[in-house]
Computed example of a mutant assay.
Amino acid sequence: MHALPSTLALGRAAVKALPMHRAFLAPCLASATKRSLSTSCPRMNIMAGKRPDEKSTLGPGAEGPHIKDLPPQASVPVNPTEKVIQGDWVLFHPVYTAEELRSVQVLSRDAKTFSDKLAHSFVKLARWAFDFASGYKHKPLPPNASEMSLEELRKGGYLMDETQWLRRILFLESIAAVPGMVAAALRHLRSLRLMRRDHGWIHTLLEEAENERMHLMTFMTLKNPSPLFRAMVLGAQGVFYNAFFLCYLISPSTCHRFVGHLEEEAVLTYTRCIQEIEAGRLPAWSDLPAPAIAKDYWRLGDDAKFLDVVYAVRSDESTHRFVNHSLANLKYETDVNPFALREPDMTTKGSRVCFERDESVKFVDEAHRLMQSKTGRPQ
């Protein structure tokens, strides 16, 4: 702390001794002398005993002011004609219209090859394990369900309450974010190892991993899991991460097919959840406002409800279903990721299981033509 003035004096002497650098260094030293313990530089913050994360007085860069340069509670300034965006730190992700949210269908791809059947079998095993660990159940309603109360249906094991649904969703989302990150990391390392470009796969896989993590962050606003639940997630995540890592080294296509089937189950689960909310069987969620993090992430309206959030999450899972089944149809080593440049519309992703390989090639070619037409380059 006391050595700083002496350091500044030495700096001024150095400026006098080096005339050619004086014009460049003098303003910096004058500014430092004036403030003494400057906050304009992270290194100076450390020298002055300040935390590196304290507010900086640096001006905005080319991308605009950093969030740390703004007063507390301030929003990042954007174009005044646009809505203020808070979550601009996240990767690209689709934002859906009301019509798109309701265009998702429960679909399943037929297992054709041996690897497809193997992936499908593992998903059925994983589904059983998830159902057991989270206490999930979905029995057909009895013929006299209209005469039974909500409490009687729950006691009979026909319906789950809000707590049971949250337990199921939190457990699912804590595991669902693993495959995208593992696949992205392995493709990243492969690109470095072979010193070749990745053909656009890494970004899509990272976006998927982050999207699933944001699902978890959203639902955690409703319930803070217990230590026992967190321990179960820790164990399941450790086993699943390492198993998926090893399997991806052996057969990436089979792993993407596995994730595609897993997302089929996720779409089914969220569809049932939506039906339960709309039928009034989850009364605590019927008129529950959407969490702020969900409004920001999916650009929902101020009056959005929790039901709108579940619709958005289901649409995301439909996107992952479509993307992973499509990637499983490609040649891992050479084919370009068709979703690197643009996304199909939600109507396509909600009503179809995937692109076949030839459709992916056409989709990539069309994306290139669109880019060339917008930039004025010859097609």
Rank of each mutant, 00 (worst) to 15 (best):
M181A: 15
V178G: 00
E54C: 08
W165I: 03
L166I: 09
R102G: 09
G61V: 06
A111L: 08
T163P: 04
R154S: 04
K55F: 03
P72H: 10
H188P: 01
P60F: 10
V76K: 10
H120Q: 11
K155G: 10
P80L: 04
I169C: 03
V106Y: 03
S56Q: 04
I169R: 01
D69K: 01
L91K: 08
S121D: 08
E173A: 05
T97C: 06
K112G: 01
A177T: 08
K117I: 12
A126S: 13
V104S: 01
P142C: 07
P77K: 00
A111C: 03
W165V: 00
H93I: 01
R109M: 10
S191F: 03
W165H: 00
L166N: 10
H66N: 14
K50S: 10
E162H: 05
R190N: 14
G64E: 02
L70Y: 02
D161G: 12
Q73D: 14
K124W: 08
A176N: 05
A48H: 00
V104C: 07
Y136N: 01
G64F: 08
K55Q: 13
V90R: 12
A176Q: 06
T113R: 08
W89I: 11
A185M: 12
F132T: 12
A98W: 04
F122Q: 13
V76A: 09
G156W: 11
R154N: 09
A184H: 04
E151T: 15
E162G: 03
S75A: 14
F132C: 07
D69S: 15
D116Q: 04
L186F: 09
Q86P: 02
T163D: 13
S103M: 02
T163V: 11
N45E: 12
V90W: 06
G135I: 10
L186G: 05
